[in-house]
Lab assay of single mutants.
Amino acid sequence: VTTYKLVINGKTLKGETTTKAVDAETAEKAFKQYANDNGVDGVWTYDDATKTFTVTE
């Protein structure tokens, strides 16, 4: 299990959150659900070296 980070650069929501997941794909699903629940819809990137997803509106 690895800790992944999400950086949110939204129009109305900015911040960070983390999740523990077995792989990046599982973390991405959780983060996309989180973003959707919070009304954030943007461009996604992922940096494997830092295990960090970024979504920018």
Rank of each mutant, 00 (worst) to 15 (best):
A35W: 03
K14F: 06
Q33P: 02
D48E: 14
K5L: 06
A30C: 06
A49I: 11
V7M: 07
F31Y: 02
L13H: 07
E25M: 15
F31H: 01
E25H: 11
N38Q: 08
G10K: 07
A24R: 11
T18F: 15
V1E: 13
A30Y: 10
K11H: 15
D48L: 08
K14R: 14
L6K: 00
A21R: 03
V22F: 09
V7F: 08
T56H: 06
V43A: 12
E28D: 07
T50K: 11
A30L: 10
N38Y: 15
G10V: 15
G10H: 15
V43L: 09
L13E: 14
Y34M: 06
T19P: 01
L6C: 04
I8T: 04
D37Q: 11
D41H: 09
A21H: 04
F31A: 02
E16S: 06
D41L: 07
D41S: 10
K32E: 04
T17C: 07
T45L: 14
K51Q: 12
V40F: 11
V7G: 02
F53I: 02
L6D: 00
K29S: 11
V1Q: 11
N36E: 09
V55M: 06
K20E: 11
K51T: 04
A35G: 03
Y34G: 02
G39C: 06
A35D: 01
T19Y: 12
E57V: 08
T18A: 09
F53P: 00
T26G: 08
A35Y: 03
Q33G: 11
V43W: 12
T26H: 12
Y46A: 01
F31L: 07
F53R: 00
A24E: 10
A27K: 00
D47R: 03
V22P: 09
F31K: 00
N9I: 12
T17H: 15
D37T: 10
T56I: 06
T2R: 09
L13G: 10
T2N: 09
T12A: 11
D48Q: 07
V40A: 04
A30P: 02
T52Q: 09
N9P: 03
K5Y: 06
L13T: 07
F31S: 01
V7A: 05
A35M: 09
F53A: 01
A21C: 04
A24V: 14
K29Q: 11
V22G: 09
G39D: 13
K5T: 11
T12I: 15
D48R: 10
V22Y: 10
T2G: 12
G39A: 13
G39T: 05
Y46H: 02
T50Q: 06
Y4A: 00
D41G: 07
V43K: 07
E25S: 14
L6F: 06
T2Q: 09
T12L: 13
Y46Q: 01
D23G: 04
K11W: 13
V1I: 13
A35I: 05
T26R: 06
T26S: 13
T18Y: 14
T54K: 08
V40K: 02
K5D: 02
N9V: 12
Y34H: 08
F31T: 00
N36K: 14
T54R: 05
E28A: 09
D41P: 05
N36V: 13
K14P: 12
K14N: 15
K51I: 03
K5I: 09
Y46L: 02
T3Y: 06
D48F: 05
V40D: 01
K51M: 14
G42Q: 02
I8S: 03
V22K: 07
K5R: 11
N9R: 09
I8F: 14
A49S: 10
T52D: 01
A24Q: 12
T17M: 15
T54D: 03
N36T: 13
G42Y: 02
T17Y: 15
I8G: 02
T45E: 08
N38H: 10
V1F: 14
K11Q: 09
E16P: 03
G39Y: 09
T56Q: 13
V55N: 01
V43Q: 09
T45K: 09
G39M: 10
Q33A: 07
E57M: 04
N38R: 15
D47S: 09
